[in-house]
Amino acid sequence: MSLFSKFFGSNNPASEEAKDNEFSKFTPDNEVPVEEQFVFNFKKNGGKFLYCENESEVKDHLEHIFEENDWFESEALCYEPELFNMLEENRIAFNQPTNPAFFLASCENLIADEGSILFSSKQIKQRKPNELPSNIVILATTSQIIRTKSDGLSVIKKKYVKDYPTNITTIKYFEKAAEEDFTQYGSSAKNLYLLLLEDL
């Protein structure tokens, strides 16, 4: 049984609250398992998190997201050919969309200490985060979770020996701040779903 299976094994709201309370502001980050730190910070930032044990669950969750948002037979922005079949299966157009309902992508890494998602030009081309649709669906794996942004840059450096990507950026805020927050200045909040596939 994986750490994630243990972490998400209970659907009891009381146990979820107990897990949240485990993260005291006095607990050093390096003592919290990186997976739990990511999930805690990601949800705190307003992200919607769906854990998937296998590819079949990824497809099921994706269909539920499309149904919940009425995205069937709409348009999507997607730059990664390996994801096109997921859109085709659900009759969602993606060739030169004029008004995409959402953005579908993978990512470079998931940054635990911020609860953010690290992208490069491989996923978003040369677009800035505020130029992407406000609805985003991300497919990632548990092995992509790393502790810090600098760890993420190191992973990118090792992964792409040639054809090094550009436009390396993160998206961190997944809901509008209730009041003005200077830390969110210049960033646009996204309605973001993360489908996290267990691969460890």
Rank of each mutant, 00 (worst) to 15 (best):
E55W: 09
G47W: 01
K159S: 12
F26M: 10
F42V: 07
P129Q: 10
P81C: 00
E57H: 12
V137H: 00
K157N: 11
L77Q: 06
S134H: 06
S56D: 13
T27F: 03
E89A: 13
R147M: 11
Q144D: 01
E68R: 10
L139Q: 06
I65P: 10
E68L: 07
M86C: 05
S120P: 04
N69Q: 06
P100F: 04
F40D: 01
S134A: 03
D113R: 10
N95F: 11
F66K: 00
R147I: 05
G152Y: 09
K122A: 13
E80F: 07
T142R: 01
F103V: 03
L83D: 04
T141L: 00
P97I: 03
K149Q: 07
E73H: 14
E114L: 15
E31Q: 15
N45W: 02
P133F: 07
V39S: 04
V32D: 04
S56E: 13
Y79C: 09
E89P: 02
S143V: 02
N109M: 13
E36S: 13
E75T: 02
P81D: 05
F119T: 10
E57N: 11
L87V: 04
G115A: 06
D29W: 11
L132R: 03
S56R: 08
N85M: 09
S74E: 14
N99D: 14
N54W: 05
S56A: 12
N135H: 13
I138P: 00
P28D: 09
V39M: 03
A112T: 11
P129S: 13
E80I: 05
R147W: 07
N135L: 03
E67P: 00
F103C: 08
E53S: 11
T148Y: 10
K158Y: 06
N41E: 12
K162D: 04
I145C: 11
D151K: 07
F119C: 05
E82R: 12
N109P: 01
N135G: 04
E31I: 08
E35G: 14
F119I: 06
D113A: 12
K44S: 08
N99F: 13
A140V: 02
N69S: 01
V39R: 08
D113P: 07
E82A: 11
G46Q: 00
E35T: 12
P129G: 05
F103Y: 14
S116Q: 06
E31P: 00
A140C: 09
S120C: 07
E89N: 08
S116F: 07
L62W: 08
N54Y: 06
D29A: 13
S116M: 10
D70A: 10
A112L: 08
P81N: 04
L104C: 05
V39A: 13
Y160N: 09
V34A: 09
Y160T: 07
L83V: 09
I138R: 07
L104F: 15
A76P: 09
E108M: 00
E36Y: 15
R147S: 12
N69L: 02
F66T: 01
E53N: 14
A76W: 05
I146M: 08
S106E: 09
R147A: 11
E55K: 14
E114R: 15
L118S: 08
G47A: 10
